[in-house]
Design a protein around this nucleic acid. Structure first.
Length: 851
RNA sequence: GCCGGAAUGGCGGAACCGGUAGACGCAGCGGACUCAAAAUCCGCCGGUGGCGACACCAUGAGAGUUCGAGUCUCUCUUCCGGCACCA
């Protein structure tokens, strides 16, 4: 053995060993249980960031652990390679997105290799490859023919100066990121996938996912948003023509309290009113300005205008004014609401602002009156009042009766409403998968036939920020109609990159299949047994993938309905940020360049740059370019090696928590690995002693191992790293450097470490002669005999407060325990002269005397 | 605004079913080794009081359930993630 730990040499040697043996290549094998372990594939943004390293380290720990437990483990890797950043880079550097993307992939792949992940690189795929995206196109044409893909208008952010559609991310405070021009909403034709057709199933099936975190299931449930209510029609007249204004409500019991109706700015009534009244037109135009983000819309001040149109209450016959209001969303329900100010907070605020009547119709916990300010009790359920024939009815009954009465008049019925909207997949961008449609003047929209797929994206174009360069390329746009052969124009929109990532996990099972989207191998590997990725994907990506899995199932491509059996959502990686004032602007200083001074207790006194100028601490937050607080994983690997990086990331925090970066703790992890090396060195050089003392040490090692195995099941890997430290501490306490117990303990330690620090464990396992390949050794299990004890320690409490402890034989009965507890001198002090009313004995833990 | 989380020493975290709060590590302090430094090793390390045995306080804040609450219930505060075109 080398006298000191040289991570670079150890890692080079281990990686070479694995590569020569194709250690991570797997095939279908019916003799062993399969385990498909998948981490979310990266967007090739340039270089790995710490979040990637964390994600893939967690996945790798699981992969290596399951391998050692005897599973046939698939862990693949690929590239989510289409997307906006490549176009931004193209605009900035005048490089084609294809080249930029492929260069990034090459660099990041080398980084992933240097981290020693047990990845089957023979399955690598990139979504920007025609071999991959042709199956997006193929599936799209199937869905189009089934009506599960269709065209309608959708709303986009429009930059009037660049004449370009902007992503939400490109809208900064309501303005275009490059032009600074106020962004407008614009309606354009787009293709949609009918995810709502699967809403019911996507919701119901959440109950069958015990391996998913409750919080994610709850978020998806709320996102899908099933609500039962009543669709209500309010008749009105426009230019003498009879029409009905439809609304949806979950509170039909409050229908008699409706004092006005409100419609979204995009609603036909608003459009009509705007045509005859310039003031309304100005207001509607104002509502249509600004970006499409819901978070922004929900926070603007509630505003509205009367349209001058009146609708008739379907039951009372009252004339109700119809308003346009900015808080009504066109995308949800009917784009119109019945307003019941007495029992809805938003309606109440609006009514108060514009002097509209408030009519209480529910007896709420505070009584029958509704007086300002708004109280949440006003919205609670209660018996109907001021509601004519419905007076006295409770919620459920009132809804039934009102729905019946509406149905008799053909002005409503009970209905289920979903919050989930169909998925608009058209993007007016270049670097994406072309939508395989041809527009023919005679035949309309014609899907591209299978034989002509893929519709290849030309790779040499360089976008400039205005419009889609594909649209300016006649070689691409001009084509023949596949149906009639006439001159036709090819669609230039590309697909949302979420389409690419909604089925890549199935393609990893058979990436070389060129005749079908997936084959029988996908039926062997799917579903993914363990999926690992950021919590930020809890809704969109995971819901789209569940949708695609079902679509592919219904196409006969896959058997199972759920793509991911178990889900682990990792926390974000955070870092401190520092800035100094540079002429009124904040100049962000990378934490690596900041020297922090602390007081005797470790509290931060001051922070300075290396050249001595004072900087201001801005707290802890996600690593971002804007705050210049990113820690480059490469610097870490170069300095300490991959194993230290991996160990630190696992040790610092449980996988689901945020991880706060600390350079000092990295140093501590490195120190531990050096200690492991030093101990092994001492062990290898020592003569074997016959016996080493230590029933206690053996008990310690095996109980730590037992706990570590339990923690692995729970995916609490930080305490597994702690367990490795505890075992080393225990071994270092042994009198002899080498003996049977040292040997046993070391073999446990190295196997326990091997999923976390695989290179080090690989090297030491071989160097100490335990075997050829630690990955092929069985996972260590605690020895029941080592865990047996004759005596146990019990804590003694008086009235729940700790007063002492006693040692009792393992088999001691209640009476004996009670006697020993009372005999304890300190316990006596607190019990003396008082009646013991009750004695609680928790076996193996404590005795509580209640006096 | 709506939906979902989180909060424990100076710091990251541990505490399995409601049963010894602070495992393991970082930082800090003291010491050994050294000409010196680094590295390494040993000891201390939530707060207050006490020579000490020990006592009291303490898991974001406030209430509640319980023999016993970091853990369960309610209210609140702060921070984080998502909100459909960032991925």
């Amino acid at each position: 053995m080398q006298p000191s730990y040289d991570p670079q040499a150890v890692e080079r040697e281990a990686q070479q060993f694995w590569e020569e043996r194709r250690s991570f290549h797997v095939e279908e094998d019916s003799a062993r249980p399969k385990f498909y372990c998948l981490s979310m594939f990266p967007y090739p943004s340039g270089k790995l960031h710490m979040g990637h390293v964390r994600n893939y380290t967690i996945g790798d720990v699981l992969t290596r652990y399951y391998r050692m437990r005897g599973y046939n483990v698939l862990q693949p890797m690929g590239w989510d390679a289409f997307g906006l950043p490549a176009e931004n880079a193209a605009i900035a550097n005048r490089v084609p997105p294809a080249k930029w993307t492929r260069d990034n992939i090459a660099y990041m792949k080398a980084q992933l290799r240097s981290l020693g992940f047990a990845l089957d690189w023979e399955r690598e795929l990139a979504t920007c490859s025609p071999d991959y995206y042709r199956w997006n196109q193929w599936l799209f044409t199937r869905l189009y023919r089934k009506g599960l893909a269709y065209k309608k208008t959708g709303v986009v952010n429009w930059d009037p100066v660049d004449q370009t559609v902007l992503a939400n991310e490109q809208v900064i405070e309501g303005r275009g990121w490059r032009t600074g021009a106020p962004v407008e909403k614009r309606e354009i034709p787009m293709y949609f996938l009918r995810i709502t057709a699967y809403a019911e199933e996507l919701l119901a099936a959440l109950d069958g996912l015990p391996g998913w975190p409750e919080q994610v299931k709850l978020m998806q449930k709320n996102w899908i948003g099933r609500s039962e209510g009543v669709r209500v029609g309010f008749p009105y007249e426009l230019d003498g023509e009879k029409r009905t204004l439809w609304v949806f409500t979950t509170r039909a019991d409050t229908l008699m309290g409706t004092t006005f109706c409100a419609v979204a700015a995009e609603h036909p009534i608003a459009a009509f009113a705007a045509r005859r009244d310039p003031a309304i037109k100005a207001f509607v135009d104002e509502c249509k300005r600004g970006a499409v983000m819901e978070a922004e819309l929900a926070q603007v001040e509630k505003q509205g205008m009367p349209t001058g149109i009146f609708a008739i209450h379907p039951l009372s016959g009252e004339r109700l004014p119809v308003w346009v209001a900015n808080y009504v969303l066109m995308g949800y329900g009917e784009g119109a609401v019945m307003a019941v100010p007495a029992h809805d907070e938003r309606d109440y605020e609006f009514a108060l602002k514009y002097g509209l009547p408030v009519k209480p119709v529910i007896r709420h916990p505070l009584g029958e009156r509704v007086d300002p300010p708004w109280r949440p009790e006003y919205a609670e359920y209660g018996a109907c009042i001021n509601s004519g024939p419905y007076d006295g009815l409770a919620y459920q009954e009132a809804v039934e009766r009102i729905a019946e009465d509406l149905e008799k008049r053909s002005l409503g019925s009970k209905q289920v409403q979903w919050r989930l909207r169909d998925w608009g997949i058209s993007r007016q961008r270049y670097w994406g998968c072309p939508v395989p449609i041809v527009h023919c003047p005679a035949c309309g929209d014609v899907p591209v036939p299978d034989a002509e797929l893929p519709v290849k994206l030309p790779e040499h174009l360089v976008p400039d920020g205005s419009g889609n360069p594909l649209a300016r390329m006649p070689e691409f746009t001009q084509t023949k109609c596949p149906a009639c052969g006439a001159q036709a124009r090819r669609e230039t929109d590309t697909m949302d990159t979420f389409v690419d990532s909604s089925w890549y996990f199935a393609r990893f099972c058979c990436p070389d299949q060129d005749r079908a989207m997936v084959d029988a191998r996908a039926r062997y590997w799917m579903p993914v047994d363990q999926y690992i990725g950021g919590i930020e994907h809890a809704i969109l990506h995971l819901l789209y993938s569940r949708f695609f899995q079902r679509v592919m199932r219904d196409e006969g491509l896959l058997e199972v309905s759920e793509p991911f059996t178990n889900l682990l959502t990792q926390g974000m990686v955070l870092a401190e940020s520092y800035y100094r004032d540079a002429n009124g602007r904040r100049e962000w200083i990378n934490p690596a360049d900041v020297v922090v001074e602390k007081d005797g207790k470790g509290k931060v006194l001051s922070a300075k740059t290396r050249d001595g100028s004072e900087v201001i601490y801005d707290g802890i937050g996600t690593m971002s370019k804007s705050k210049n607080n990113g820690v480059d994983p490469q610097a870490l690997i170069d300095r300490y090696g991959a194993d230290t990086a991996r160990f630190y990331i696992i040790f610092a925090s449980p996988p689901t928590n945020t991880l706060e970066w600390s350079d000092e703790s990295v140093e501590g992890s490195y120190r531990f690995l050096r200690r492991v090396w030093a101990y092994c060195l001492k062990f290898s050089g020592a003569a074997a002693a016959g016996e080493d003392a230590g029933r206690e040490v053996r008990f310690e090692i095996h109980s730590v191992l037992k706990q570590a195995n339990y923690d692995l099941q729970k995916h609490q890997f930080n305490t597994v790293a702690s367990a490795a430290m505890k075992i080393l501490n225990a071994l270092e306490g042994l009198p002899a450097a080498r003996g049977p117990l040292a040997e046993e303990g070391l073999s446990i330690l190295l196997r326990l470490l091997s999923p976390i620090t695989p290179h080090l464990a690989h090297h030491l396992w071989r160097a100490l002669g335990f075997g050829e390949d630690v990955m092929r050794a069985p996972w260590p299990e605690p020895d029941a005999a080592a865990l047996e004890r004759d005596e146990v320690e019990l804590v003694v409490q008086v009235n729940g407060k700790l007063r002492g402890s006693i040692r009792v034989p393992r088999e001691a009965d209640r009476g004996a325990i009670e006697g020993l507890a009372l005999a304890n001198p300190n316990v006596q002090r607190f019990v003396a002269g008082q009646n013991v009313k009750k004695v609680v004995v928790v076996p193996g833990r404590l005795v509580n005397l209640v006096v």
